[in-house]
């Protein structure tokens, strides 16, 4: 069996987050070197603060200021930091109970090695030089020799000038994608400008592109069947609005095309005919360009239109 194709797939997007009143105060506070927590209904102080009480479901809005110093409650050594993590060199992930808080804040501790980290050790915030109103305004924690402050955390109104109301949360996922055995064969055949599907041994339908199994019968498809090259436009729309990342002159026709011998229409662009003369039943054939994996578009063959009854089951 020939090797299946593989390729990197990176999915990334700059999601935006509306913060709401509590997270807005917390992140704006970090920008001003102020760590805020929230008082729960039973008087505990949560850092980072939450909007709703985890026990009573009450809305929580009573903010307090806690110290930038605290105690490590648990930790894990991170020997190989990855892209986007707080520090480039190996560090400890720590839960820090800041002085005045009753819960742990997850962050990074800058330490020379795991031997330098213990549960119960004292740490303090190392502020980032440039702060924007984000959790990264705390660059990391660092070891600290002072004792815990005794005072009760003071109430804070959460008001700051020019409060941060939203953040951008960049997300990125790295995959290795493989289209699998059936589509690999289909893609390899396209390189020879041939379209090869697979026939279901049970219902005899020819799937293009093949998925390796028939979605109706639930059985593997193995028999290769070459279809096309010509086909019939089963339905279409005229696109008058630019799609992202596509450089095609408007308007153009986006069509469903049933290649001869296929039991499922695939999608393609119709050209070589004025857009307003494209019709259901139009007979078309692929037009390839150098280096293209797929046909660039389909053009009329000049044959008479297919009769509606011959393709209506494929619409």
């Amino acid at each position: 069996m020939p090797e299946v194709l593989k390729a990197p797939l990176v999915v990334e997007f700059p999601f935006t987050r509306s913060l709401g009143p509590v997270q807005s105060a917390f992140l704006t506070g970090l920008r001003e070197r102020t760590v805020l927590g929230v008082k729960t209904t039973d008087g505990k102080v949560m850092v980072p603060p939450v909007e709703y009480d985890p026990v009573t479901a009450d809305e929580l809005r009573d903010l307090v200021e806690v110290e930038p110093t605290g105690t490590v409650t648990t930790w894990a050594w991170n020997p190989e930091p990855r892209r986007g993590q707080p520090l480039d060199a190996p560090f400890a992930w720590v839960l820090v109970k800041l002085d005045g808080a009753d819960t742990g804040l997850l962050h990074a501790l800058d330490a020379p090695g795991p031997d330098a980290v213990t549960t119960g050790m004292r740490v303090r915030v190392r502020w980032a030089a440039e702060r924007t109103g984000a959790i990264t305004d705390i660059a990391c924690f660092e070891p600290y020799e002072g004792a815990a402050a005794e005072a009760e955390p003071a109430a804070h109104d959460g008001q700051f000038d020019d409060a941060v109301s939203g953040i951008v949360a960049e997300a990125r996922l790295d995959y290795v994608y493989s289209p699998g055995r059936a589509q690999t064969a289909y893609i390899n055949a396209l390189a020879d400008r041939r379209t090869v599907g697979e026939r279901c041994p049970s219902c005899r339908k020819v799937y293009v592109p093949p998925r390796g199994a028939c979605p109706t019968c639930g059985v593997a498809t193995t028999d290769r069947v070459e279809v096309g090259p010509a086909g019939t436009v089963t339905t279409f729309c005229i696109v008058n609005v630019k799609a992202k990342n596509l450089d095609i002159e408007l308007p153009y026709v986006y069509a469903h095309i049933a290649l001869d011998g296929a039991d499922l229409a695939l999608h393609g662009r119709i050209a070589g005919i004025p857009y307003d003369q494209v019709r259901m039943g139009l007979r078309v054939e692929p037009v390839w360009t150098e280096g293209g994996r797929y046909p660039d578009h389909y053009r009329p063959t000049g044959e008479p239109d297919a009769d509606y009854d011959t393709y209506k089951e494929l619409v």
Binding site: A7, P179, F236, C237, Y254, H267, G268
Partner: peptide, 19 residues
């Protein structure tokens, strides 16, 4: 990867079915 991009925006999926 390897997949032909959809040649139309959001409505391009629905409009052919309407036709």
């Amino acid at each position: 990867p390897f997949t032909q991009p959809l040649l139309a925006g959001a409505g391009g999926f629905f409009a052919p079915h309407v036709r």
